[in-house]
Design a binder for these strands. Structure first.
Lengths: 228, 228
DNA sequence: GAATAACGTGACCGCTTAGTCACCATTCTA
DNA sequence: TAGAATGGTGACTAAGCGGTCACGTTATTC
């Protein structure tokens, strides 16, 4: 992990009181967000070091410096904490994918498709760089069995992969991708390759700008796919 | 998971008594191997369903139908059980890589390199098909933090990736791979892509022969890499 | 064939874990 | 400004966990 430590993510509290939540920006609202951010930051450090399934609530609250009862005031359990903490990354990924779909709607040349894919890869790399810890956890756990506290990450991964397949199919339907190669294989293979390379950058196996690495990689794979 | 359920793997007991192990093929030897195979089979089922870190010794021995004290007679802890159970897959992967290196030594044409890589991919796919449960667990956990019971899987993944980079570098040194593309990026991206596709086959997201899918994928990536 | 190491066992031990709770403090609503 | 909802707490509860143990059985060694 690079030495740059980003600020705790701005997460949306999943459980806000119904009757007297206090005004937006009020003391209660601010305290609630701060506490939740502290819990998320503590959980992130521990999940990176040990893996989600091995981290206990006691470890999280000790690292965050809050009482155990507070943990359960803000989240139902560890799974809900995971769902909460990955929201910023999930939002950024969804934004990148939405952007790519929009660009595809108005694309009209095969060369433009390459640019769209490269831009998508760059935006996903930017999302990763904005949330290096979360992305590392995401990449570590995305293929886990879909049970327990890792489930929100697996669900996000499933969603991203479905979107990638949908995007690739739309490209073919627009006549921008002419290949006999299986669309799902190419979409999932590209994700698998990009994920591994991103993971290498985030764990300092590689140096340099990951944006460059993953956009070049996407071109390489697209060229290979087109040659079929 | 396909309905075909392979027999329990033949694993080598990690802890054999020193003084009176009994003769090879004797009652004790046979019982020891059978018990260990039962523990491995039970663990595999549970690891697939819940993930390694969430499975307890009590669950494993209950599923295997052996007493808890027996568990500790045959393995030190869950980590050693994981190391033991993945040996057949590890051996098969090492054999495939060794084969590819040997083939590379006597290769003399760029087209032969494609054949070597395809053959390697096919052999790794065969290894996966011979051990579908183990491979699925491997693919689920290979990027986990390198602590705790998942460590043997992470170590195997690191070894396989180093070997892939070494193989790619040897190909370039033999003049069989001419590209300006970063060798490590191409090696790890190919593994990342192949792993995702293999995972799709093993979890029945894809039908058809995974050998065909991954060998074609390797060609696609190699073609893309060479075009740089 | 007697002796010895290895095996099989499941209760047990000490500790850990998720989640709750009752009480006091704080914030905000009417 | 009084009252009510919300927050903060850490001891507590009930259950679970890793790992051990002492004893009887079995297999093998000399």
């Amino acid at each position: 992990m690079s030495s740059r430590k980003p600020p705790p993510p701005r997460v949306e509290p999943p459980n806000v009181p119904r009757e007297r939540p206090g005004p937006a920006g009020g003391r209660r609202d601010a305290n609630r967000r701060r506490r939740l951010a502290e819990l998320c930051a503590a959980a992130e450090e521990l999940f990176l070091a040990e893996g989600i399934a091995a981290v206990t609530v006691d470890q999280i609250v000790a690292r965050a410096g809050v009482a155990k009862g507070s943990f359960y005031r803000y989240v139902r359990d560890t799974e809900e904490l995971v769902a909460t903490m990955i929201q910023p990354l999930a939002d950024a990924m969804r934004a990148a994918i939405t952007c790519a779909h929009a660009a595809l709607e108005s694309a009209d040349a095969a060369a433009t498709l390459t640019a769209i894919y490269r831009d998508l890869a760059a935006q996903l790399a930017d999302a990763a760089l904005a949330h290096p810890g979360l992305t590392t956890i995401y990449l570590q756990e995305a293929r886990a069995p879909r049970v327990g506290p890792r489930r929100p990450i697996c669900a996000l991964s499933d969603e991203v992969e479905r979107a990638a397949v949908t995007l690739t199919r739309a490209a073919r339907d627009h006549g921008l991708l002419r290949t006999d190669y299986d669309l799902r294989v190419s979409a999932l293979a590209a994700i698998g390759a990009a994920d591994r390379i991103l993971f290498a950058h985030l764990s300092d196996e590689f140096s340099g700008d990951p944006r460059d690495t993953v956009t070049d990689l996407v071109s390489v794979i697209l060229d290979g796919v087109r040659s079929r």
